[in-house]
Computed example of a mutant assay.
Amino acid sequence: MSDPVSSIRNLGPAFEQACARAGIHSAKELRDLGADATYTRLLQAGTKAHFIGYYVLVMGLQGRPWNDCKGDEKKALRHRFDAIKASVSTVPQNRMISDLDAIGVRVAPKDLKPV
């Protein structure tokens, strides 16, 4: 059995649950993906973007305390975070809505009849 995501330094149960929603179920999977790909998948799965969450992940994968990130290193991580956030589109969510509309799962307001 693989080590859980929460076995990585700085990452607790809430982060582990977010990873599970993104299809990441073990520390090994997370390490293999790396911080940027993991965070991208978290955002695509609906996790709200938060810079501290990103750099906590980066520091944890390096085996460092979460608050060890400072100065130029923190600025560089901020640029990476901003790029990841910008790359994640809401198109899949909009596509899902249009797919649901196409099969009639959602009802348009104009189609509602008074009872």
Rank of each mutant, 00 (worst) to 15 (best):
S87T: 10
F15E: 00
K75Q: 08
A83Y: 05
K85I: 01
T47K: 11
D72W: 03
R41C: 04
L43V: 01
D99I: 11
G53L: 00
V56L: 05
K48A: 06
P65R: 06
R9L: 11
G63F: 00
V56F: 00
K85D: 07
Y54H: 08
R78Y: 08
A83L: 08
A108R: 09
K110R: 10
P109L: 03
R78C: 02
D99T: 12
F15G: 00
H50Q: 04
P114S: 10
Q62I: 00
Q17H: 11
C69H: 00
R80Y: 02
Q44Y: 01
K113G: 04
D32P: 14
R41Q: 13
I84F: 08
R9E: 10
D68H: 09
I84C: 06
V107C: 08
R41L: 12
C69G: 08
R95T: 06
D82L: 05
P114W: 11
G63N: 04
V107S: 09
F81M: 06
N10L: 02
E73L: 02
Q93K: 06
H25D: 14
G60M: 05
I103P: 11
S26T: 15
K70H: 12
I84N: 07
V88T: 09
L61K: 07
D111K: 11
P4N: 13
H50L: 02
I84A: 10
Y55K: 03
Q17C: 07
A20L: 04
H25S: 15
Y39G: 07
D101F: 07
L100E: 12
R9S: 09
L30S: 06
D111C: 02
P13D: 10
A37M: 15
L33E: 15
H50C: 00
R31N: 14
H79S: 04
L77H: 09
S7R: 09
V88C: 10
P109F: 01
D82R: 00
P13A: 13
K70L: 05
I8F: 08
S26M: 15
A102T: 14
M96S: 08
A20N: 11
E29Y: 07
F51G: 03
E29D: 11
V91W: 10
G63Q: 06
H79T: 04
I97P: 01
G46I: 03
K85M: 01
N94R: 07
A27P: 11
G60W: 05
Y39R: 09
I24W: 05
D72V: 10
T47R: 13
N10V: 05
A22P: 13
A45R: 08
Y55C: 00
A45M: 11
L11T: 09
F51L: 06
F81D: 03
A35T: 13
L57Y: 04
S98M: 14
V107W: 04
L42H: 09
D32T: 15
Q93T: 04
R31G: 12
P13H: 13
P114I: 13
Q17L: 12
D32W: 14
A37V: 15
A22M: 13
D36A: 15
L61C: 07
D72Y: 04
F15D: 03
F81S: 05
L77T: 04
M96C: 05
R78H: 03
D82T: 06
R80T: 13
T90H: 05
